[in-house]
Simulated scan of single mutants.
Amino acid sequence: MILARFDYFAAVEHLLKFPNVEIVQGYGLTESGGGATRMLGPDEAKQHGSVGRLAENMEAKIVDPSTGEALPPAQGGELWLRGPTIRKGCVGHDKATAETLDSEGWLKTGDLCYFDSDGFLYIVDRLKELIKYKAYQVPPAELERLLHSNPEIADAAVIPYPDENARKIPMAYVVRKPGRNVTAGQIIDFVAKQVAPYKKIRRVSFINSIPKSPAGKILRRELVSHTLSSGSSKL
């Protein structure tokens, strides 16, 4: 089974349901014309959390989104891809083509990633999902993984919340597990002990369920819209 983009938790769930099935991860986009990375064999499959190494004939680099400078291994930035299967552009949409493809044929994926020293790719988040807190950028997916690790929490989503001083602050919508009574303060402290100060969750609201698409993607826009219209009252 090959999973793309941010399906790490889906892979774990399938592994628990089908213990005798080998599950590996890969990564690809519509714009890449297929898989850009893949895992081969049981040894590579042990790199949990990674989506594998580059596929044949595919080039990649991690780029600083602000400067366009290529970054070394272990540093996070936007993933750029180039290869024979990369699309040539958007028909009739020159502006969209220019925004996603540079003059040398590099596809700007919009995904925040990094390579380790062995060439394995790790996806952190979508660039457009990053929360701009003061001069820092906070990836919601990182905070959501921490929240999911809390035994009191069934599900969670992190969104930007307007703030006069910081511009945006990370806010968490949390679904408690049945019979659990974890408080907002406990959740804030739980995350604060594991992240840098600028990544701390600063606001929590409890809801019955996280809105998601049929594919399981968090519908952050719905949460943001609800927050702005109702002052983050209970859903």
Rank of each mutant, 00 (worst) to 15 (best):
F206K: 08
G231N: 13
T100D: 06
N208P: 05
L228W: 06
L101R: 02
I207A: 07
G92V: 11
G52H: 03
V91W: 11
G49H: 12
Q47N: 14
S209K: 09
N181Y: 10
T67G: 04
L3S: 15
I86W: 01
N181C: 08
R203G: 12
Y8R: 09
C90L: 09
H93L: 14
K132H: 15
R180L: 08
R126F: 04
H226Y: 11
G41C: 10
Y27E: 01
V195I: 09
D155P: 05
S232Q: 12
F190I: 08
R176H: 08
R221M: 11
I169A: 05
D43P: 05
K61V: 06
Y122S: 10
I201Q: 00
G83P: 02
E144R: 08
V12R: 13
E142R: 11
L143R: 02
T183H: 11
K199I: 07
P170N: 05
G231E: 13
S103Y: 08
H226K: 06
V91F: 12
N165D: 08
I62G: 00
V204K: 01
A172C: 09
G231W: 06
V24K: 01
H93R: 14
V12I: 15
G26A: 09
Q186E: 15
S232R: 13
S233P: 02
V174C: 10
P211C: 01
P151K: 07
L54F: 12
N181D: 15
A184Y: 07
D94N: 07
M1V: 12
V195F: 05
E78S: 05
D118H: 12
L112C: 08
S117I: 11
V63D: 01
G76E: 14
C113N: 05
K217F: 04
F9W: 15
T97A: 07
V224N: 02
G35C: 03
W106A: 02
P65N: 03
E99Q: 15
C90A: 06
G26Q: 01
E59M: 15
D43E: 15
M39A: 06
A196M: 14
I131L: 09
E164W: 04
D102R: 04
A96W: 04
I188H: 01
K217S: 08
A60K: 00
P72A: 10
E164L: 06
N150D: 14
K234E: 14
I210K: 02
K46Y: 08
Y161H: 10
V24E: 06
A215H: 13
V182M: 10
D189E: 15
I23L: 12
K88Q: 14
G83Q: 12
N165G: 07
P72C: 07
V158N: 04
H48D: 12
R53V: 13
V24L: 04
